[in-house]
Amino acid sequence: MSDSGSILTLALSLVLSGDAELWSIIGLSLRVSLTAVLLACLIGLPLGAVLSVARFRGRGAVAALLNAFMGLPPVVVGLAVYLVLSRSGPLGVFGLLYTPAAMIIAQTILVTPLIAALARQSLADLHGEYDELFRSLGLSATEKVSALIWDGRYSLSTAALAGFGRAIAEVGAVIIVGGNIEHVTRVMTTTIALETSKGNLALAMALGIILILLALIVNAAVMALNRTARRLAYA
């Protein structure tokens, strides 16, 4: 491990030099994960809000299922999406396997339950507080859901950031459905896995640094959001 210092130096210089390959990998990572989180929010936030408001038989079971799916193993999601998108699969005709679209689909599936479950929890608390007011005002279910999503926007942003944290750091699903093809589907985590196995530790380490920086940024954003929410008494 006498090299570890020099590897780190090399990694830092890669990060700072604006290496084109490095940045194209980072760019794809961000594009895939941000798109997946956006889609997961479009599905998960209303789903979580509806579950926090609706009263129907089996609501508890759905909530429990969502909570369980928060921890879906990425490789299993990758495998399932692979089977669906592969040539012989039901959606094989679209030829999506080994494209960024396939990675977006896999990460969306991975992250949607997380966002929906977190949204359901925080909006259920909010709904407990608003319930009698909403019923007194005679609001429709749609009006309730949209009011809850708007008033819960700070905690929902936190849920979205948690989803992004999970998506950007995940390797199991994207490597199965993306295939880690250079310049096509190679993202940060898959590159780290590959380059480490090839012994090219500097590039792996450089990407690792970026990933950690992203994690720090996400956490700082969560803290800033929470602080703003508290200051405005919106938390």
Binding site: E129, E132, L133, S136, A147, D151, G152, L232, A233, Y234
Partner: peptide, 10 residues
């Protein structure tokens, strides 16, 4: 209806 604890939107 007005509740004992004012229920105000955020």
């Amino acid at each position: 209806m007005v509740f004992q604890r004012p229920t105000l939107l955020r």
